[in-house]
Amino acid sequence: MNEHVETPPVAIEDLPLLRASGLTRFYGDRIGCRDISLSLWPGEVLAIVGESGSGKTTLLNCLASRLVPTAGCVEYRMRDGTVRDLFRMSEAERRVLMRTDWGFVHQNPIDGLRMSVSAGANVGERLMAVGARHYGKIRGEAEHWLERVEIATDRIDDDPRAFSGGMRQRLQIARNLVTNPRLVFMDEPTGGLDVSVQARLLDLIRQLVADLGLAVVLVTHDLAVARLLSHRMMVMKGGVIIEQGLTDRILDDPREPYTQLLVSSILQV
C-alpha cells in the first residue's frame, strides 16, 4: 500500500546529525536501556519522555558519550561532514567535540556551572578552552550571550551563587551556546523551577533553538515541556522505546497503554 511513498522533500537537510543503533546499556543484570536506534537531524528537537527509571537519562548519557554503552554505537556527523563513531574516537577528540559542537544542559545548574567563578568566566570558559586569548573579546562574547539569555550584563562579574535558580539555568545555557554548538543535550532543563520561572525558561529555550537552528535531545518527564519544545517524541518504559512519532500525534493520539496513561495524567489548566 505504500507504493507512492517518497523520500522526504528536497528542501530539508537529508543527513542525520546523530545516529544511534542498537544502543544498550546494562547495570549489572539490570537494564538501563535496550536496543535503541534513533536518528536526529539538524534543527530537530527530540523529546525523550518517561517516568523515573524508564531509562531516559541512561539513553541521554549514552548518546552524549558520557556513559559507555554495553552494546551498540552512536555516530555523529562532524562539522567537516565526516561521520564518526563516538566510541571509536579518542577521548581527546570526544572532549573537544563536547565543548565545541555540543552542549549539555543539566537539570541542576550546579552540575553544569563553575559556582566559584563569575558569570562572565562561566560563559567564557569554552572560548578559552578553544584558544581564545583576548580578554576584551572574550568578555564581549560573554556579554552578548548573557543578553541572549536575558541576564543583565551588569551581573557579568557576579558569581552564580548570587543568582536565582532560573538565572543559573539561563547562565548554564549561555555557557553551552557560546561556541555555537549544533547539538545540545538537555536533561530536565526546567525541573525543580517555579512554574512562572519555568515558563520563561521554556520560552527562551524555544526561541534560541529556533533562532540558532539547534538540534536538541531533550529528556523530560513533563509532557507539557515536550509539547512546547519538541518536534518529535519518544516514550520510554522499562528501558525500551514503546512509542514514537510527531509530538502532537503522540499527545493527541497516544496508542500504547502506558502512553495513554501518561497523556491522561497531564494536568489541564
Binding site: P8, P9, E44, D252
Partner: peptide
Amino acid sequence: NYGVEAGQIICACESGKLIDIASADARTIH
C-alpha cells in the same frame, strides 16, 4: 495529529513528489 490505521493519504508536493502521510515518518510530516 492522528495516526492513520488504514488506507493512504497522498499529498502532492509542489516539487511533484508524492508523500503518503499515513505512512510517512515524523520528520517528513514535519
